[in-house]
Design a binder for these strands. Structure first.
Lengths: 225, 225
DNA sequence: CACCTACTGTGACCTGCGTCTCAGCCAACA
DNA sequence: TGTTGGCTGAGACGCAGGTCACAGTAGGTG
């Protein structure tokens, strides 16, 4: 299995190769495709996941049909650990966005592992702290920044995480529909569409199928803040 | 010092009395009053705080003068630890909201302490996980819930944390101006004022100086969700 | 290849809430 | 005791963005 990729996850970053590969070997891998659900709100949360390849979205549903996305995660990222540390049902659902391989680690195994490797526990603290900060950031964006600004931010963020330099710009294969993008920035699909169209008409980016190519990253940055 | 109260903080909850009181003794207490700033955005974050009595607000400022509140914390609650686990400047400022006593614990002391008491590290993980969940909750509220609904939620939350049963209802001394309440729910002062006035006119609550008394908690709950 | 379903693009309309403004109120302080 | 400054209450107005409606496009399946 792609040892390399797994090692990027905070869970494993602190480990020497042997320990890490032993741990990875003990975890159960699974392949899934778009639309597959890893877990839903209300499920009992008994394992943590690490993404090998592909992307997964974490979301919450409102009483009526609406949905909002907490995050979109890619290779090397970890999720689902919250209900291990803070026992209780899952408050979020995890859905596969593109062809994805993940490995899962059960609750007891994780507890045992953390007890044996306190350095990893510290890494996890650091990881959670970072996520808390980013989430707080997201909160104030929602208050301070208008929709086009949030769209720009989201694209830049997706760009740094999933973008790859191409002919004339950064190609970002986010694998998200505009609907999902809208749920991610907390706006309606239509408004996001218009923001994207506007950016494109200014030549800041080119729209593609579940992807964008960022041409003028500086303008986009300026629009974001 | 109020040993009892300190022991409520997740940091100490797992400790036996001796260890806890030894630790508390090593921490420097300070008394502050409304408006005092514990730290500001950009400061280098080198200590964590535990509130003995009083309340503290955590906030972020936008480029222009606007401000948004991340949380309002009371006795027994802890803050400022994020920049210890995830090194870097503070991304949030901490300001005293009412007469407050806090104790501070320096970075190195904390690191040492966590290394010696792994059970406490696990408690901290649990604490961060819980906060992350609540913050995610706040995020989706901002998208799904209208301003009056968010005001109702905020009051209920403040109620469970700071409320005390009184003659006819729950008296909530939140110590916040309507301006601060507005920053907490991500809305304008005026809109929050109108929501409060509306709730009061329906007899769900009575407004007081930096306080409310909740009369009909069920109605308020129903309005919140 | 034809059909269907999911997705994107765009305009028209409507509304919740922000902004502006001003008027009372109370506490602090000279 | 009057004055000043922070806080609350409330109306008028405008706009960002939500909702609705529909048209065009592309990928997937028989």
């Amino acid at each position: 299995m792609d040892q390399q990729i797994v090692m990027k996850a905070p869970l494993f970053a602190a480990l020497d190769d042997e320990t890490a590969s032993a741990l990875v070997a003990s975890m159960t891998p699974q392949s899934m495709h778009r639309g597959d659900v890893l877990f839903s709100e209300g499920d009992r949360g008994d394992s943590l996941y690490v993404i090998i390849t592909g992307k997964v979205k974490l979301g919450r549903a409102s009483g009526d049909g609406r949905e909002s996305l907490i995050a979109v995660l890619g290779a090397g990222e970890m999720f689902g650990e919250l209900s291990l540390f803070d026992p209780g049902p899952r408050l979020t659902s995890a859905t596969v966005v593109s062809e994805t391989d993940v490995i899962a680690l059960g609750n007891e195994d994780l507890q045992k592992f953390l007890a044996e490797h306190p350095a990893v526990a510290m890494k996890m603290l650091a990881g959670l702290a970072r996520r808390l900060r980013r989430t707080n950031e997201g909160l104030s964006d929602l208050v301070f920044t208008d929709v086009p600004g949030r769209v720009a931010k989201a694209l830049l963020d997706l760009g740094t995480r999933f973008g790859e330099p191409s002919a004339e710009g950064v190609k970002v294969n986010h694998d998200l529909t505009q609907e999902e993008l809208a749920q991610l920035v907390g706006a309606s699909r239509e408004t996001v569409n218009k923001a994207l169209a506007d950016f494109a008409s200014r030549g800041w980016l080119v729209l593609g199928a579940k992807a964008v190519t960022i041409l003028d990253i500086d303008r986009l940055r300026r629009r974001a803040r």
